[in-house]
Design a protein around this nucleic acid. Structure first.
Lengths: 339, 339
DNA sequence: TTGAAAGCGCTACCAC
DNA sequence: GTGGTAGCGCTTTCAA
């Protein structure tokens, strides 16, 4: 059986209070008692119970991370960054894949609460933002990453999605594209909406427009992207876009697959830009031009904000916006030309 | 503040014992009291504390998953399968990326123990297997996935790595390759060792051999794979392999990149087979022929075994071996020919 | 300095 | 049926 604080105390001939003190480095203990207790802990291979400690008002040293799908490389990379930064400070990470379903979000929110996590990092969308209210009322620290929850006072770390969308558009415009289209995520995904806005904004500044049926909403799988891209690319030549802006790398892969299936060459017949710059972007055929999010810095920052909130409550909520970057690979070129 | 069992009891005018009983569906309670209590719980939005419950000898409903790196798609996909199956049964998942470093493994093992997780799923290698002993002595349920811990009586779920290696070799032999090479993982990775063994075995059965410098050990990143593949592919023509078996998809991507850098065509100049069939295999250029592991069934099975172990202890340890499958895409062909 | 004791929220046993 | 109560392992006053 596991050794408890009582075992240590008995073995060392002191009170449990003494043991507790040396563990927490509080109170006054003579050096020799301290040493003795430490020795006994070692000998018994004593592992203090976080559970018991947490019950006494201390922390659980556990954080929750809600994302749509941990098997999606983007979120897996986020998770790794978050895990590392948390681990640095002694925290563990519980992952929660929501599939963007409110019921799952709710379930996980409740579960994490019952498990008394010290804080939650939310990187998933949800239709009903009210779900977060109860948590905030109970002042459970919550921070957002890669998603915004407007109207809610929450620390938030995002990349500048609007600017990212602009960058993609600028790239296409500079290349000379005239017929553009977008593969967006579900409209409830704020980051995707911003990217679309930025893209459209830049296009309009350049005197171009985007017809509605050239903006397709997908879920977040490559299959979805492929299906929508197929429809786009099968339009009559005069309407068929020569450039596709995809709101994430997964969708871009779907677009690439669609192009391949239709025997369209990339980038000669159609250019594709993705978003996120996950590992996927570097291995596609051709390698994907994409807008990079600074995933690691974002993950680190969001943990820092959360831990900050953990100690000093009720400060100003920050909104940290990090700059995306256009990574030009080989999926983009001038329309109708070999690059 | 969060409502406690006392709040519910007071509000409902009953004892906490009564409340506890309705929560756990045990003991006898009159229907009306039951309904009343339920109503109060609802009203107070009562969330029972898993922490307190766990302290009383119950479970924490939390599982730990140790993998080398959650941002590696293979492990991310494993994690998703494990998460889902666990979630089904009310468990949460703590992810632990070890980077294959013993110190990190040890740290996480200790942390998970202090947090009283109900069980651990280990999908990472470690040099010193002794680290697991203390956990086993304390009879903390441990199961292995995609890794073996020989000499240790542990439930284990793996795919048949040896057979997987054989499949790769058979594929190459059937295609007519004569000069083969392997990109293996670190020798301490049992699964990789088995794959190499199977590969070599089949080769020898076909009357072929593999010289030592045609078997390279890498870590687990694409960069490593690329570096080693570069060396292999820069050998003089008479020694240069026409077929590369890579022990995972990441390494295969590195190989693909190496080939591209050297202006070698795949599969005309060099064929490449990967292992795992992660999402990466479907997006490479060209799409990767690979040996698929049944990731989802494996993840589900390992959770089942763990939960089984949770209830009835000390049963026979199972070793579940799942069958891999050759997925032929476009990175393999006959040597010197366009496929 | 040191330790006795009062909880933290919940479970389970036992007496009523 | 129902509720009192003794812990679970640890933290934290507060006396001594």
């Amino acid at each position: 059986m596991k050794a408890t604080i009582y075992d240590v105390a008995r073995e060392a001939g002191v009170s449990i209070a003494a043991v507790s003190q040396v563990m927490n480095g509080k109170g006054k203990i003579s050096e020799e008692r301290r040493a003795e207790i430490l020795k006994v802990m070692e000998k018994l291979n004593y592992q203090p119970s976080v559970i018991a400690s947490a019950l006494t008002g201390k922390k659980t040293y556990t954080l929750g991370l809600l994302v749509p799908d941990i098997s999606n490389p983007f979120f897996a990379e986020i998770a790794r960054a978050v895990e590392d930064q948390g681990h640095e400070m002694g925290y563990s990470l519980v992952i929660c894949s929501t599939d963007n379903k409110d019921e799952r979000v709710e379930r996980y929110l409740s579960l994490l609460q019952q498990k008394s996590v010290d804080g939650m990092i939310i990187g998933t969308g949800m239709d009903n933002k009210e779900m977060l209210k109860p948590l905030m009322d109970r002042s459970i620290p919550i921070v957002m990453i890669a998603r915004e929850m407007q109207d809610l006072a929450l620390h938030t770390v995002v990349c500048d999605d609007f600017v990212g969308g602009c960058m993609a558009a600028q790239h296409f415009v500079a290349l000379g594209h005239k017929r553009l289209a977008i593969l967006a995520e579900h409209t409830k995904v704020t980051s995707s909406r911003e990217r679309v806005k930025g893209f459209v904004h830049t296009l309009e500044e350049a005197g171009m427009t985007l017809s509605d049926h050239h903006v397709r909403n997908c879920r977040y799988t490559a299959e979805d992207g492929k299906r929508e891209a197929l429809e786009l690319l099968e339009l009559p030549p005069a309407e068929r876009p020569t450039a596709l802006f995809c709101c994430n790398d997964m969708l871009a892969i779907g677009a690439l697959q669609a192009a391949k299936q239709l025997k369209l060459r990339v980038p000669e017949d159609v250019s594709v830009v993705g978003f996120d710059n996950t590992i996927l972007a570097s291995v596609t055929d051709p390698p994907l031009t994409t807008i990079a999010q600074p995933i690691e810095p974002m993950g680190k920052k969001v943990v820092d904000l959360l831990l900050l909130e953990l100690k000093k409550k009720s400060q100003d909520k920050q909104r940290v916006v990090m700059r995306p970057e256009l990574i030009v690979r080989q999926s983009t070129g001038a329309p109708g030309h070999v690059e």
